[in-house]
Every structure is written in C-alpha cells, then in structure tokens.
Write a protein that binds this DNA or RNA. Structure first.
Lengths: 190, 190
DNA sequence: CCTCGTCTAGGACGCCCGTCCTACGACGTT
DNA sequence: AACGTCGTAGGACGGGCGTCCTAGACGAGG
C-alpha cells in the first residue's frame, strides 16, 4: 500500500472517531484497529497525535469548502444558499442527534483541553461565518452581515447541543422551520 | 475535619475542575491537589469517579433550583423571569468565554463518552426547560410554551459554544439583545 | 488510660496512554 | 542475483490513570 493511501485511510478513520468519541477519548489503538494497522507504526505517517488532528482539520476544511462551492454553483440566490446551510442541521439530523455538531463539539473539547490547535479547529466555523457574511452582504445587509452570519451559526450550534442531548427529531424540525421563517422575514420580498 | 465538610470541599473543587478542564481530563490527583488531600483517600468519601460526578450534578441542581426560586421571588412578571435566564449568558460572560456553558459542555462531553450519567446531567437543562415552559404558559402561550422554552435554551447553548471559541464580548451582547427583543415582541403589549 | 470508630496518608495494582525504536518483509532498480 | 528503499510489525519505555488496601493518627467516650 502506498503511503499516501494509508495516510488518507488513517485521516478518514480518525475523523470519524474524533467525531464519535471525541479527540482525547480516541486512542492510537482505536484508530489503528479501525484502519487495520499496528499501532506503533503510526509514527511513520504522523509524528504525534496533534499531527493527526491537524490532518483531520485540514480534511474537514477541504470537505466544507467543497460544500460551499457546490451551494454557490447550485443556488444563484444568496438566500437559498443560506438556506442550504440552515438545512444541514436537518439533513444531518441523525449524526447530530448521535454525536452533536462535528465542528462545535471539537472546538468545545479543545477549548477545555486548552489545546494549541483550538484556533485551527475554529477556522472551520470561521469558514462558514465568512461565507455566510458574504451571502448576507449579497442580500443587501452589508452593515449587519457579520452579525447575521453569527446569528445563523448560533442557531446551528444551539440546536446541535440540545439535539445531541434530547435526540428529538421534532425539536430539530421546529427550530429549522423557525430559522427558515426568520431568514424569509429578513430579506426584502422577492 | 468532619466527613461532610470534606465531602463538600471535594464536590466544590470537582465542580470547578469539571467545568474548567472537563470531566475526563480531570483526574483524582487534580481534585486531591485542589482540596489538599491525599489522592488514595478519596475512596473513603466517593467509591468511584462516577460517584463524584453524581454529587457534582446534584450540587449543580441544588444551586440552579436556588436561582429559579430567587427569580420567582424577585420577579412577579413571567417575562421578567425569562429575561433573568436570558441575561445569565451576559452576567456570566467571563466564565462562558473561558469555559463555555457548564451544563452544555458537560452534556456534550458525556454524550461522546456514552457515559451512563448523561441523562442525569441532562436533567440540569431539563430543569431550566420545564421552568421556562411554565413561565411561557403563565405568559399565555400554553400551546407553544415548551417550544418557546426550547428556543430560549437553543439560544443560550449556541451563544455559549461560539463565545467560548471567539471570546467576543460584543457578540454575546448582540445576541442577548436580540433575544431580549424576541421576547418583547412575543408577549402581548404590556 | 485505654479502646474504638472516624478520617487520613501513602503506596501497590493492573491497565492504557503517547511516544519511540529496531528488525523484518516486499519490491523496483541495476 | 544483490541492493536499497518503503512500509510495517511488535514491543519497550516512562508515566498517568482509576481503583483498592492497609497501617496509623486523632479524638471522644468508657
């Protein structure tokens, strides 16, 4: 097996395990078992656990950037793009109920660990924040665009935390609907 | 030192450390050092780490029940009571920026650990949910009272996660103001 | 003064962690 | 056929963890 392919397998497995069990609670042995490799050998690919975290964050950034590009391509209307973001909470409701938001839970954990990589993980949310800001600006809310973007993020994080606790599908749908209505009330009538 | 007093010291120290560092990341040695006791001796007071967690949750429940009783005593108007809840996000902004919401971060962590005590920790948020539900009912929103209560919780959790990441006081104030306006727009004009 | 229950110190136990090292198998190149 | 490189296996290492045990300090009641 080429080193690059193995590396990708490791990152993919670590990504899933960090999400499902948390960063600290996931051991090298766990990742090794998931990939089917011996645990000591990991140092050929990653020199530390932080290096794996770094690769996972980079992979998530790539994936999210892909989402944003797709939304921009598929939706010419900025409001429709924002709606796509709001709806991931509903689309991914099964995972969110089981494990929360992948970005929010990771930043929450790294903040408690006072991990040096907190800010890098935060860039994932910043990616969405900046993209949402731009969409609100295009919608004609230049002044408040960043505040509106943060409000959408606030909604998504709050729903994720409580959906993870109560595992209530109806709650998720209600909040998403409410956010949809908020967005609709915000824009000038189309 | 009497056993009860020592127990309370342990619970108080564990409460703070679980909040600041997280449950799993806090060791018996950490708590022992904070209280000034020897680590092995803990088993005289608590037979397991889960037992300490249980005591911490109970202590937090007591404290929060005290808050609710005080708000009810000081504010005859249900809307003013709800406002008191909304404003704890701002009142406790320093702690929230440093460590997030004590209840939200704990449930998030316990969910990832698949810890058996997740639901007990969840009762802390349920306490607020039910209390807010009752206040909305008193406000005349019996039908939607629980949904409205969940919406307030959603706000508080979302703000806590993002305030913990970005540590931005202005963001907290803006979201709290927005929530205040939401609450004001909700009730029949007083 | 002695005894007994209460509380504590200190460390042993087995386990798992992240890290690091060395030896070996597989394989393309000369 | 021999070599050198790439990727792997497996375990050693030092340390920290939750748990558990035992011996003793202390003080109240006989």
């Amino acid at each position: 097996m080429t080193a690059i392919a193995t590396r990708e397998q490791i990152v993919r497995a670590a990504d899933r395990l960090f999400y499902e069990r948390g960063f600290e609670h996931t051991s090298f042995a766990d990742i090794a078992a998931a990939v089917g490799l011996s645990r000591g050998n990991f140092y050929y690919h990653f020199k530390s656990k932080a290096a794996i975290l770094d690769a996972v964050i980079a992979a998530r950034l790539d994936e999210r950037r892909g989402w944003l590009a797709r939304w921009e391509a598929e939706e010419p209307d900025p409001a429709a793009r924002i709606l796509r973001f709001i709806e991931i909470v509903h689309v991914n409701r099964a995972d969110i109920q089981a494990h929360g938001c992948p970005l929010g839970t990771m930043t929450t954990e790294l903040a408690k660990l006072e991990h040096t990589m907190l800010m890098q993980a935060g860039e994932l949310l910043t990616l969405f924040r900046d993209w949402l800001t731009e969409q609100f600006r295009l919608l004609g809310h230049a002044e408040r665009s960043e505040d509106l973007a943060m409000h959408v993020l606030t909604f998504s994080q709050g729903v994720a935390v409580l959906a993870n606790l109560y595992r209530d599908e109806n709650y998720i749908r209600r909040e998403v609907d409410q956010m949809r209505a908020w967005l609709h009330a915000l824009q000038p009538t189309t």
